[in-house]
Structures are given as structure tokens and as C-alpha cells.
């Protein structure tokens, strides 16, 4: 545990001198712009709560369908990038740290950065709602659950992408594949057959399962989603760990 925390401290230094934080801002900012300019009146919402639901689900769709899975891939590639470029794996593993703690530290850094972006998105939703005059009566519990489960649903994808990024010394290749597999999300989220098992679609399914739309995979109960998320997360993390433990550096 001690080793793990020491590596995280070291990772923080490496990231703090990079421009990664700009990436964290992109999606919340774009969502904010979409939210502010969304014309709620044209949808003929019955009351403020419905207006809010419309606003939140529109912003979440943009954020979770494309940006969140792509960001997950970028972050995974990013935490491996310096190590691949400068021979860092070799150096890190000649220090007194176990491979498991190094792997888990890398994963935690991705998870923390994703959590930060989710918090920024939360701020964006509140700000967009305020711009439409919705300041009180926000369904906080619903909002926080959506943000939180969206974050959880990114973790299996993060584990998968971390595995790919570690095994592939190229920075771009895992990213391209990630983007290619993210784009079909628009179709896949509507399928109740593939949707629940497609890692790239999980964040959106998780974030939107709290809205009142029910079509395709959205109709799935949260429990099913959580089981898939937990199961695939465990699977990808274990595969990645086993691979990294055996990897020849």
C-alpha cells in the first residue's frame, strides 16, 4: 500500500507538468455550451423539472456518448506515454516497487482524472441549468447518481485501454482503435442485445439510465448494468495485471 501511494505521488509530479488538465476541461466546456444554447421552450416541457431532465439528458448524451469514452482512452494512453517514450518502465521497475502496485497506481491516476472530469461536468450542468433560470429544486440525488455511475461505467473501459496502452508502445494506435470503437456508440446504445455488453457504451447507458426515456438498452435496470460493469472491470483488470506481471521489460 505504501509503495502504491509513493508511485501515485510520483505520477502526480509527472502529470502536473503536462497539459493533461486541458483535456479534462474540453467535454464539460462543450457540454456547457450545448446546455446554455439549448432551447428548452421548443420542446414544450410541462414544468421546470421536466425542463431540467431534458437539459441534463441532452448534455449527458454528448458528454457520455463520445467524449467520455474517448477521454478514457486518451488518459490511459497518456499515463503510459512517458514510460514508453523515455524508457520509464525499465527505470520504474528497477526501483523497489512491485509490478502490481505500479499497475494499480497507473489505473488509479486514470480513475481520479475521470472523476475530476465528472465533477467538472456536474458544475457544467448546474451552470447550464442556472442560465435557464433553474436554480432550486434540482434533483440532486438523481444528478449525483448519474455522475457517479457514469464514472463507474468508465472503469472497465479504462482497465481495457490501460492494458492495450501498456502492451502497445505506440501512443496513437490505442487511441485510434478507441475512437473507432466509440463512434458506433450512437447505434449500439439503442440495441438492447449488444448495448449492455459493449464497454464503450457503458458510460452513456449508466448516465442516462436515470432519465425517463426508455428505448433500447436504456430500459435496462441499473442492477443489470452494474453487474456488467463490475464483471467486465474485474475481467479486464485481471487480464491487464497478469499480462504486466509477465511482461519482459
Amino acid at each position: 500500500m505504501n509503495g502504491f501511494l509513493r508511485i501515485v505521488a510520483s505520477e502526480r509530479l509527472k502529470l502536473s507538468k503536462s497539459y493533461i488538465w486541458i483535456l479534462l476541461l474540453i467535454s464539460p466546456l462543450l457540454s456547457l455550451v450545448i446546455g446554455v444554447f439549448l432551447s428548452l421552450e421548443s420542446f414544450g416541457a410541462a414544468n421546470r423539472l421536466e425542463e431540467y431532465a431534458l437539459l441534463a439528458s441532452t448534455m449527458s448524451s454528448f458528454h457520455a456518448m463520445l467524449f467520455l469514452p474517448i477521454l478514457t482512452g486518451i488518459l490511459s494512453a497518456f499515463v503510459c506515454r512517458y514510460e514508453h517514450a523515455g524508457g520509464g518502465w525499465k527505470q520504474l521497475l528497477t526501483l523497489p516497487v512491485s509490478r502490481v502496485s505500479l499497475y494499480l497506481a497507473k489505473f488509479s491516476v486514470i480513475a481520479i482524472l475521470l472523476a475530476l472530469t465528472q465533477l467538472l461536468f456536474l458544475v457544467a450542468v448546474i451552470a447550464a441549468a442556472a442560465s435557464h433560470g433553474i436554480t432550486d429544486g434540482l434533483p440532486w440525488r438523481l444528478l449525483l447518481t448519474s455522475i457517479g455511475s457514469g464514472w463507474l461505467a468508465c472503469l472497465p473501459l479504462a482497465a481495457l485501454q490501460l492494458f492495450v496502452s501498456i502492451s502497445w508502445s505506440s501512443f496513437a494506435a490505442p487511441l485510434v482503435i478507441n475512437v473507432m470503437l466509440t463512434i458506433p456508440n450512437m447505434l449500439i446504445v439503442n440495441s438492447d442485445k449488444i448495448g449492455p455488453y459493449y464497454p464503450w457504451a457503458q458510460p452513456m447507458l449508466a448516465m442516462l439510465s436515470f432519465s425517463d426515456q426508455d428505448f433500447g438498452a436504456f430500459a435496462l435496470p441499473l442492477e443489470t448494468l452494474l453487474i456488467t460493469v463490475t464483471g467486465s472491470f474485474t475481467l479486464f483488470l485481471v487480464i491487464g495485471l497478469l499480462y504486466f506481471k509477465r511482461k519482459e521489460i
Binding site: 509530479l13 509527472k14 503536462s18 512517458y82 523515455g86 524508457g87
Partner: peptide, 9 residues
């Protein structure tokens, strides 16, 4: 083999 480094630091 060759020195390891983080170029941006």
C-alpha cells in the same frame, strides 16, 4: 542500456 528520462520534466 540507455538512460531513462521524462523529456517534459
Amino acid at each position: 542500456e540507455y538512460p531513462s528520462y521524462y523529456g517534459h520534466l
